[in-house]
Design a protein around this nucleic acid. Structure first.
Lengths: 217, 217
DNA sequence: TAATTTTTTTAGATTAGTCTAAATTTTTTA
DNA sequence: TAAAAAATTTAGACTAATCTAAAAAAATTA
C-alpha cells in the first residue's frame, strides 16, 4: 500500500513525462508538488527503492512499468470521480478537479469498479481526458490544437490542455463546451485570434491563447 | 483544518461517550483506536489545546461543544457515504462501513451538501442510524432491544447496535432486514432465545445474543 | 577548457503521530 | 488506611515527509 504522497509523486512524474523521452528533473517535480528540491531528492530515493521509478543521481527520473501502472490507476480513480461529481452531483467542470484530488486516494478496488459501472463505463472525464482501464492502460489519442487548424476547416471540440478553473470558466462564459462544432472562419494576421462559427449558429472570436488550449478532432 | 487522525479521535470519543456522564478513559480510547495509552495521552493534550475536548490529567475526557459539532459532522459524512455506497453502488450493509471510514475525511462542504441532495436527504444510514444535519445536530431516538420486548408484542426492526460484517451477514442469512415486522411469539426459559413471526409469514428463532443487538420500535 | 552558474544531493532539523519503558497517580483491596 | 494493582502520564526514541543551508555535480558561458 502506498501513501497519498507517494501516489501524488507517481502521478506528477507521469504527467511531466508526457511528450518527452528524457527523465523528469528534480526541480520540475519540486515545482509541481510545491515542495523543495531537497524533499524531492529524498522521496525519489524511496520510490526507487520500491521499484517504482528509474533513478540515478543527477539524472532525471522515469516511471518503471509498475510505477506507470500505479500512476494510471490513480488517474483512473481521479477521472471516474470527476465524472461522478459532474454528472451525478452537478458540479461544474471547473470545480471537479480539486475534490477529485482527494477522492483519488480512496483505497478500494471494488469501490472504483462499482463506481465505473454506476457511471455507465465512461470513456472520458468532464475535460475530455480518457479514463484508463482497471489494468492501468489508457488509450492515447492525438488531438490537434484549435490554433493549428487551417481556415475553412470544421472540427469538433474534444478536450482542453489547460484545466485551471479560470480557463474553464472563461470557456463557460464563451459557451464553448465539449462536443461543439467549430468552423474556423479566419485567423487574424494581427494577433492570431481565431474567428469560429459555433454549431453553425453564432460566431465567436477566440484568442490565440485560448485556441492553443482547445483540443479538437 | 483538522487531520484525519484528529477527526478519528473526536469521533471515537463521541461514540465512547454515548450513554455515560463520565469522561472517556485513556485506555478505552487506546483500545478503540488501536494505539497505546501513551499515544492517546499525547493526542489528548493536543486536542485540549485546540479546545475540542475537556481534559484534566488522570480524569477522562469529554468533547467540548465545538468538538461534538465536529465529531457529528464527520459522522454525517460517514453515514451519507454509507447511503451512497448501499443505495447507488449496491454494496451490502456489511461492506459500507470500511469504505466510509476513508470517505468521511474528504474535505468539501459543498460535496457533502450535494451528495445529501443527490441521495434525497436521507434521514438514516443503511444500519438505521440517524444522519446528523449540516449544523452537526442529530436527533436521538430511543429504541428498545428485541431482547426486552414482552411476548405477544409486535414491533418493527429499526436498527442494529452491532455493526460487524459477521453480525450483519448473519442477519442477511436469517432474512432480517430493517423495516421488517417482528411479532414476539415466545421467549425461551432455557436460553432466552426468541421465537419471532416475521412479516406475518414465517417464524424464526433468534438467539438472545442476536436479540440484544436488534433495535426495534 | 576553465570559470561561473544552475541543478541536485547531502547534512542536519522539525513536526505529527506513534512506540516502549519508566515514573507517577488513582483505584482497589486486604 | 497502607499496600498492591491498575491506569495514566512522562521521557526518550522512531518514521515519513518536510525544511534550510551547505556541498557537490552538471551545464553553461566566456
Amino acid at each position: 500500500m502506498y501513501s497519498f504522497t507517494e501516489e501524488n509523486y507517481l502521478k506528477t512524474i507521469f504527467y511531466l513525462s508526457i511528450g518527452t523521452q528524457e527523465g523528469v528533473s528534480t526541480n520540475a517535480l519540486a515545482d509541481s508538488t510545491n515542495t523543495r528540491a531537497a524533499s524531492v531528492s529524498d522521496m525519489l530515493k524511496r520510490l526507487a527503492e520500491k521499484g517504482l521509478i528509474n533513478y540515478q543521481k543527477y539524472r532525471g527520473v522515469t516511471l518503471t512499468e509498475e510505477g506507470e501502472r500505479l500512476a494510471l490507476l490513480v488517474i483512473r480513480k481521479h477521472r471516474l470521480w470527476e465524472v461522478f461529481l459532474a454528472e451525478k452531483l452537478q458540479f461544474g467542470w471547473d470545480e471537479v478537479h480539486v475534490i477529485a484530488e482527494e477522492l483519488e486516494h480512496i483505497r478500494s478496488e471494488r469501490l472504483i469498479e462499482k463506481l465505473d459501472a454506476f457511471l455507465g463505463y465512461p470513456k472520458f472525464d468532464p475535460h475530455g481526458d480518457p479514463i484508463p482501464n482497471a489494468a492501468g492502460e489508457m488509450p492515447r489519442f492525438i488531438y490537434r490544437k484549435l490554433s493549428e487548424i487551417v481556415e475553412g476547416t470544421t472540427v469538433i471540440m474534444t478536450g482542453v490542455s489547460e484545466h485551471s478553473p479560470a480557463f474553464l470558466q472563461h470557456l463557460d462564459k464563451a459557451g464553448l463546451t465539449l462536443g461543439c462544432q467549430l468552423k474556423v472562419n479566419e485567423i487574424s494576421d494581427f494577433d492570431k485570434s481565431v474567428s469560429v462559427l459555433i454549431d453553425n449558429v453564432r460566431t465567436l472570436f477566440v484568442s490565440h491563447e485560448v485556441a492553443k488550449n482547445l483540443l479538437v478532432k
